[in-house]
Design a protein around this nucleic acid. Structure first.
Lengths: 371, 371
DNA sequence: TTGTAAGCGTTATCAT
DNA sequence: ATGATAACGCTTACAA
């Protein structure tokens, strides 16, 4: 593979001039530039980014560390990050931790040694934990989706509290009295915020929460399935379930089916995060949708802003609104044993909550309208 | 951030010795090694991979270029690649092309400039196209999922022909006479092989194929939806549809629902590739499953083998067997308007076809057992 | 507008 | 077993 010297020789200039052409420096003679560009063409020269990074101390690369690459929420976030990064000439390392703090640590060491310019991370839990490796090494960082305690750093997330409250309000408005919640890991801010939203909605309706109706596990289908079995084995008779994310909802659907119950006839279900094709495969599933793509874009923009300026900015926290999508369909077009005609899902969209937390200022929550 | 010189000074040795310790060279005194390791600890030293790559001419990184990161098939392939790579100390750049040859070209240029040691790619079409950039630059390459004409290069794919034939045989065994196929892009070998499998199964059953029943589009839900509408608008009355991949199947489900028809009552559906939770959300959906994870692992192993040996090997082609998962459930546990009790999906698993093509040898197909 | 020289942090080579 | 030196390919700083 040819190098910058080869190009310089071919064009009859110094390597510096070639470098200037490559980097679109203004002070290059037009004719010279043409000669260099022709030489580049002729040799099929491709700049060596490795050498460039070593000298310039910038790799023009970011890392995106996320917990579950099989979840459409996260792939959408990733697309947002990637598009925004690419617009600014950055490439993105995608790192999948499987919600595993050990894997996360391995990736943190990896990105540190690869000298990425910045990191966007959804930490495996809310404690600073091994994330402080980034602070210690002074690597520009944006936290997505979750809060971390103990480090004031840029963050972007969806409004978990407002979305959860809106979902539960919706269930209450349908007349449900015994609403269970299958949540995620205790140490995770999203799980905590969603539980808080659930509790708040109950309280606002003067309904006393029953601790036995709240199950905590992981943000995974298997966990949702397990906890649903646990829930339904007890004598609590919930009429509705709030799943703290889409993966958990899948587990709930599985377990409910295994127990011979039907959704939504025997038990209603709502969840956080949507599925791509939910409106056709799960036409009964009311969801709170986070603007996943925008979360990615915002995170990348905050990060690039920090990388490309020298001055130190205050930490910025962006909380994006969550949309409620209300679906209910009692006959499905997929199967209805009694041969009734197609009933399309009834879909409604309502804003949930918009919050932009500025530095050193309390979150100001607008109202949630569950329709 | 401290450098290798800082460590050397702290430990009272030369940088070369530190380098030897870092690379586990055998010829280092035990006491010296300890001193160096302590210095590394004390300084929190992390080797600069950029500098290492520049000097050693190896980045210990791979690129995985794939067409659709939102498809579970591809995320599973990615996990296989990543696990295998990580085991050998390599990291992976994930590049999502959206089946777009222009994006693919951009990524090819990117990975060339980043000097990745090797590339695993599912090309956007079967022509060599811009993939030959890799050959020209002499970058180790493995093609996954698809064949390319015009370049003899290592490849790993699932048995599209055998899987398709098994699926259509299954439909035929259920008595279907008019079987439609919604396929992918004409230039793609997977689409072509699956059409070939479809045609072969019909022929083997002495059924004449009807060209109007074969629709070609993209490997996307939107395309599947569109083509299904097209299909059902004509007066062809198919009793079954074979979707060439999972995304297309989603589109078929959507369109069929929109037209007021029910699956599988009014029209049966089978598809290539599975969904994670299909057995619960789509209990009627018989599928041909490719061993996605193994495809990833195999691709990475072929690639690493090529990178880490000096000798030139003949091109190797690995074709992995496809499994048929037979599901049929007429009442769903999700919705059944007449209140019947739960009916769990009936699931059967049968091998489809096992082929390992060695260089310069025709594929040898074993029999497909549709049940 | 162009060029010279130095250096980024590491490893390859050769010497001791 | 350890070290001195050069080199990887590029960009920065300075000079012309």
């Amino acid at each position: 593979m040819s190098t910058i010297s080869d190009v310089a020789r071919q064009a009859g200039v110094s390597t510096v001039t070639v470098s200037r052409v490559l980097n679109n420096a203004p002070n290059v003679n037009h004719a010279t530039r043409n000669r260099v560009e022709r030489a580049i063409q002729e040799l099929g020269y491709v700049p060596n980014v490795v050498a460039r990074s070593l000298r310039s101390k910038r790799t023009r690369s970011l890392a995106l560390i996320l917990p579950d690459i099989t979840n459409p929420f996260w792939t959408t976030v990733a697309r947002g990050v990637e598009d925004a990064a690419q617009n600014s000439g950055y490439s993105v390392f995608l790192c999948n931790t499987d919600e595993n703090c050990t894997k996360q640590l391995r990736y943190l060491e990896l990105v540190a040694s690869r000298r990425v310019d910045g990191v966007i991370i959804a930490p495996c839990n809310s404690n600073v934990g091994n994330v402080n490796l980034l602070r210690d090494r002074d690597i520009a960082t944006v936290i997505v989706d979750r809060r971390v305690e103990g480090w004031e750093v840029d963050s972007v997330r969806g409004d978990s509290f407002g979305g959860a409250r809106a979902l539960v309000r919706h269930l209450i408005s349908l007349g449900h009295k015994r609403i269970a919640m299958i949540s995620g890991p205790g140490g995770t801010s999203t799980a905590e915020d969603r539980v808080a939203g659930y509790l708040t909605a109950l309280m606002e309706a003067s309904m006393a929460p029953d601790p036995r109706l709240i199950k905590q596990g992981e943000f995974r289908a298997a966990s949702g399935e397990h906890l649903t079995h646990e829930l339904l084995a007890e004598d609590l008779n919930p009429t509705a379930v709030f799943a703290a994310n889409n993966a958990i909802a899948l587990g709930v659907i599985k377990a409910v089916g295994q127990r011979g119950l039907r959704i939504p006839h025997d038990i209603a279900l709502v969840c956080f995060d949507d599925f791509d094709e939910a409106s056709h495969l799960l036409p009964f599933l009311t969801v709170a949708v986070q603007p996943a793509y925008d979360i990615g874009v915002n995170a990348a923009q905050l990060l690039l802003g920090r990388i490309e300026t020298t001055q130190t900015l205050e930490p910025r926290h962006v909380v994006l609104p969550t949309r409620l999508i209300i679906r209910h369909s009692c006959g499905s077009h997929l199967h209805d044993g009694n041969g009734s005609r197609l009933s399309l899902p009834v879909t409604g969209v309502a804003p949930a909550r918009v919050v932009l937390v500025k530095p050193a200022q309390e979150a100001e929550s607008s109202e949630a309208y569950a329709r």
